[in-house]
C-alpha cells in the first residue's frame, strides 16, 4: 500500500523527467507541431507516406539516375529513415512511459488502496507514511483533493512564469472555460461526500457500542464498530473514485498525450517536493508541543 508513492516518484518519474530533458526529440516535436499545427502522430505518418511515394516514383526514374545521384539519394533516404526511426523510438518510449505513469495513478486510485482490516480504514485517512504537513497541505479523505488537481492544471495553464501549458485553448482555461466548470462540478461532488462523512462522524455516538444509547455485549460491540467502519470505507471509496475521475479528466480527456505527460511530471514533482518539505518540517518541529504552564489539567 505504501509503495506507490515511492515507486511513482523515484523509479518511474525520474526516467521520464530525464528523458524529457535529455532527448532532443522534444525540440523537434515542438517545431513540428508549430509547423503543422499538430502534436499527434500525423507528422510521422506524413514522413512514412512521403517515403513510400519517393520509393515508387524513383523506381520509375531509376534508369535516369547517375551513380552519384543514386548515392546522394540513398544517403538521403538513410538519413530520413534514421530520423524517422528516432522519432518512432522516442514516440514509443514516450507512450510507454506515459502509459506506465497513468497505470500507476489508476492502480493507486483503484486497486492498491484496498484495505483488508478495519484498522486500515484509519490508515487510508491518515497514512502514517505521509507526514502531517503533506496531509494538511493537500489531503482530502486521505489523498489529493480532486478539485485541487484541476485547480493545479488551471493555474499552470494560466501562469505567466511557465510556458508548459500555454498552448491550451482559451475554451479550456478561461475563467468560464471547461476547466473552471469542471472544478465547480467536482467541488459539488466533494461537498456531497463531505456531508456523508460528517453524518457518520456526527451520528457515530448513536451507533458505536460505547455511546449512551447503544450499550452492547462485547460480541455485538465489534459488529457495531464494523458497520460504522464499513460506512466510512464506502465514503473513502467514493472520494477515491472522484479523485480518479478528476485525474482521468485531466490526463485522458482534457489534455493531449504530451500535455498529459507534462502534467503528470509536474504533479509528481510538486508532490515529491511537498513530501520533502513536510519531512524536513517534521524533523525541525518535533512532536507538537504546548507550554508546560498551559498544560496543567484540572
Amino acid at each position: 500500500m505504501n509503495t506507490w508513492r515511492q515507486t511513482m516518484k523515484r523509479a518511474k518519474s525520474q526516467p521520464l523527467l530525464k528523458f524529457l530533458k535529455e532527448s532532443d526529440w522534444e525540440e523537434s516535436i515542438k517545431s513540428e507541431s508549430k509547423d503543422e499545427g499538430s502534436r499527434s502522430s500525423s507528422s510521422i505518418l506524413k514522413q512514412v507516406n512521403s517515403m513510400s511515394i519517393n520509393i515508387k516514383e524513383s523506381s520509375k526514374r531509376s534508369e535516369e539516375c547517375t551513380t552519384e545521384n543514386y548515392g546522394l539519394w540513398r544517403n538521403e533516404q538513410k538519413a530520413r529513415a534514421a530520423r524517422l526511426e528516432k522519432h518512432l523510438k522516442a514516440k514509443w518510449a514516450l507512450e510507454e512511459l506515459i502509459a506506465e505513469q497513468l497505470v500507476l495513478f489508476h492502480a493507486h486510485c483503484n486497486k492498491v488502496m484496498v484495505p483488508t482490516k478495519l484498522k486500515d480504514v484509519a490508515r487510508l485517512l491518515m497514512p502514517e507514511w505521509v507526514h502531517p504537513h503533506e496531509l494538511a497541505a493537500l489531503s482530502w479523505l486521505g489523498d489529493w483533493r480532486p478539485s485541487a488537481i484541476l485547480d493545479l492544471l488551471r493555474s499552470l495553464a494560466t501562469s505567466s512564469s511557465s510556458s508548459a501549458f500555454s498552448s491550451l485553448s482559451a475554451d479550456l482555461v478561461s475563467p468560464e472555460g471547461v476547466l473552471a466548470q469542471a472544478v465547480k462540478e467536482i467541488r459539488i461532488e466533494e461537498a456531497v461526500i463531505d456531508e456523508e462523512m460528517a453524518e457518520i462522524q456526527a451520528n457515530c455516538i448513536m451507533h458505536l457500542p460505547f455511546g449512551p444509547v447503544n450499550a452492547k455485549s462485547s460480541k455485538m460491540a465489534l459488529a457495531c464498530v464494523h458497520s460504522e467502519f464499513e460506512k466510512v470505507h464506502r465514503v473513502i471509496t467514493k472520494a477515491q473514485n472522484l479523485r480518479a475521475k478528476a485525474l482521468d479528466l485531466v490526463v485522458e480527456k482534457l489534455l493531449g498525450q504530451i500535455d498529459a505527460a507534462e502534467f503528470v511530471v509536474v504533479f509528481t514533482t510538486i508532490q515529491e517536493m511537498i513530501h520533502q518539505i513536510s519531512s524536513q518540517q517534521k524533523l525541525r518541529n518535533g512532536p507538537v508541543s504546548i507550554p508546560v504552564k498551559a498544560s496543567g489539567t484540572n
Binding site: L138, D151, L152, S155, L156, S159, V266, I270
Partner: peptide, 9 residues
C-alpha cells in the same frame, strides 16, 4: 495553495 504553486511554477 495549489493555485499559488501552479501559478509560480
Amino acid at each position: 495553495f495549489v493555485e499559488r504553486v501552479g501559478g509560480e511554477w
